[in-house]
C-alpha cells in the first residue's frame, strides 16, 4: 500500500506528463510507461487510473479516441489538450515547490 500512498495527489501529474512524453496512449500503456520509466518504483493501480482518466477528461485536460493498437486490438487512446498542457506546467511547478519545501525541511538539522 505504501506505493499507493506515494501516488496520492500525484497521479494526475504522472498521467499528464506521460501523455506529454508519449503523445497518445491507452490506459494500459500509461501504466506500463510509468512503471518502466520509474524503474518499477512507481506502480499505478488500474482501479485508480480509470477514474482519474475520466475525471481529467471531464476537466478538458485530455481528449480520447478509439484506435487500433499495434496488436490489432481496439483501445481508447488519450492525448493532452492545450488546456492540459498548461495544467501540466502548473502541476510540474507545484510539484517542484513541494519537493523543494520537503527537501528544505529534511535538510534542517
Amino acid at each position: 500500500m505504501a506505493r499507493n500512498d506515494q501516488l496520492l495527489g500525484t497521479l494526475d501529474l504522472l498521467v499528464l506528463k506521460t501523455l506529454q512524453q508519449l503523445g497518445a496512449m491507452h490506459g494500459y500503456g500509461i501504466v506500463l510507461h510509468i512503471q518502466r520509466i520509474s524503474d518499477e518504483l512507481l506502480r499505478v493501480e488500474e482501479g485508480s487510473l480509470y477514474p482519474a482518466l475520466h475525471r481529467i477528461e471531464q476537466q478538458g485536460w485530455i481528449s480520447s479516441e478509439w484506435r487500433t493498437t499495434e496488436n490489432n486490438r481496439r483501445a481508447k487512446y488519450y492525448r493532452l489538450t492545450a488546456i492540459g498542457r498548461r495544467q501540466l506546467a502548473r502541476e510540474e511547478q507545484k510539484w517542484a515547490e513541494l519537493v523543494r519545501g520537503v527537501a528544505a525541511v529534511l535538510r534542517f538539522a
Binding site: H26, G27, H54, N71, A75, K76
Partner: peptide, 29 residues
C-alpha cells in the same frame, strides 16, 4: 469525485465504452 464519476457512469453509452476500455486493458495485460 465519485458522484462526478457516477454521473459519467450513468449514461449507458459511456458505461459500455468504459466496459470496452477496461476489457481492452485486461486483455493487453
Amino acid at each position: 469525485l465519485r458522484s462526478r464519476f457516477l454521473s459519467v457512469f450513468r449514461s449507458a453509452q459511456v458505461e459500455q465504452e468504459l466496459e470496452a476500455e477496461l476489457q481492452a486493458h485486461v486483455e493487453m495485460r
